[in-house]
Simulated scan of single mutants.
Amino acid sequence: MSEVSLHHGISVQRIGAMILRYWYLLISSWPRLLDLLYWPAIQVITWGFIQYYAAQNASYFARAGGTLIGAVILWETLFRGQLGFSISFLEEMWARNLGNLMMSPLRPIEFLLSLMVMSLIRLLLGIIPMTLLALVLFHFNIYSLGLPLIAFFFNLIFTGWSVGIFVSGLVLRNGLGAESIVWTLIFAILPLSCIYYPVSVLPPWLQYIAWSLPPTYVFEGMRALLIENTFRTDLMLEALAINAVLLLASFGAFLALLRSARKHGSLLSGGE
């Protein structure tokens, strides 16, 4: 059977084969599935009760409605999108299989695209139960946001992929000794993304840095929608423009780190 190729000879069959590999790996391990469900559930329950308390004791939070739970769900979208990408990559490192893949006909771009699709699958498995818990326990329906939710979702997943591609390249070049960066780098932008508070809370000099991060626009847009019933199209377009630059830069960084790993022999070792 002939291969179906996309632009520049990208093979749909090879991408599909990699997606199937990660899917079978995921469904064959209940701890992996439990991890997808457990932490989002804990997050939404914990922050839901915090919001109940805040609504009873602070006029701002009472006026803000479901901003805390909405922020948690959107943060999990960003975090799980990046983590889903990086975990699939790390599983190749842990299995010492990355060298085999890079010597196969699989192209680096095909490898990254398969990781992106797998990231979406992992994300949906964790986020959908989380949104249902928020609806049942706290009567917050994230889907009531309508079409703006799509803009929020894709801007956050694009940022997650950018971070995931970059940190995967760092681990590829530096070995599993750099594995902790997979979990730590995304949290470095958490305070500056203004997830639980507006940008105006930050000192003026930090606000410039905050506005250079796409998630900041998403969370400001979420608050404008929930509090003022206004969808800020300008914020979403600015976030999309920054995300486009970040994605291209992350692809370039990954390919450069891959070449460096091949040159220095770290592609096959991949140890600590």
Results as ranks from 00 to 15, higher is better:
Leu83Pro: 01
Met116His: 07
Trp39Met: 03
Trp94Gly: 02
Leu20Glu: 10
Met18Arg: 13
Gly48Gln: 03
Phe231Asn: 07
Trp205Tyr: 09
Ser2Ala: 14
Leu132Trp: 12
Gly48Lys: 07
Asn57Arg: 09
Arg21Phe: 14
Tyr196Arg: 00
Leu33Gln: 01
Ser28Gln: 10
Tyr60Gly: 07
Val171Trp: 03
Ala210Phe: 01
Ile19Tyr: 04
Asn229Leu: 07
Ser168Leu: 04
Leu135Gln: 13
Gly9Glu: 03
Pro105Trp: 01
Ile50Leu: 09
Asn243Arg: 10
His8Lys: 15
Ser88Thr: 13
Gly169Val: 11
Phe140Cys: 01
Ala253Pro: 05
Phe111Asp: 01
Gln207Val: 01
His264Glu: 09
Leu90Gly: 02
Leu113Gly: 09
Leu190Phe: 12
Asn243Leu: 04
Leu255Glu: 08
Arg223Thr: 04
Ala261His: 02
Glu238Tyr: 13
Ala253Leu: 12
Pro215Ser: 02
Tyr24Asp: 05
Asn229Thr: 09
Val163Gln: 05
Ala241Thr: 13
Tyr53Ala: 08
Tyr208Ile: 01
Thr230Asn: 10
Pro191Ser: 10
Lys263Arg: 15
Ser88Val: 14
Pro191Gln: 12
Val72Asp: 06
Leu176Lys: 10
Glu220Lys: 11
Gly146Tyr: 04
Pro129Ile: 00
Ala210Ile: 04
Gly65Phe: 07
Ile45Asn: 03
Ala253Gly: 10
Ile157Arg: 02
Phe231Val: 14
Ile45Leu: 09
Ile42Trp: 07
Thr184Cys: 01
Thr159Leu: 11
Pro215Lys: 04
Val218Asn: 10
Ile195His: 11
Ile128Glu: 01
Leu145Lys: 05
Arg232Trp: 05
Leu213Cys: 02
Arg96Asn: 14
Leu268Met: 12
Ser269Asn: 13
Met222Val: 00
Met130Trp: 03
Cys194Tyr: 07
Val117Gln: 00
Ser5Met: 06
Tyr208Cys: 00
Thr233Gln: 10
Ala178Tyr: 10
Gly252Leu: 09
Phe153Asp: 05
Leu26Cys: 06
Ile242Asn: 06
Gly16His: 05
Ile45Gln: 09
His139Gln: 15
Ser212Glu: 00
Asn100Val: 08
Ser200Arg: 13
Leu149Thr: 06
Met102Arg: 08
Val201Gly: 13
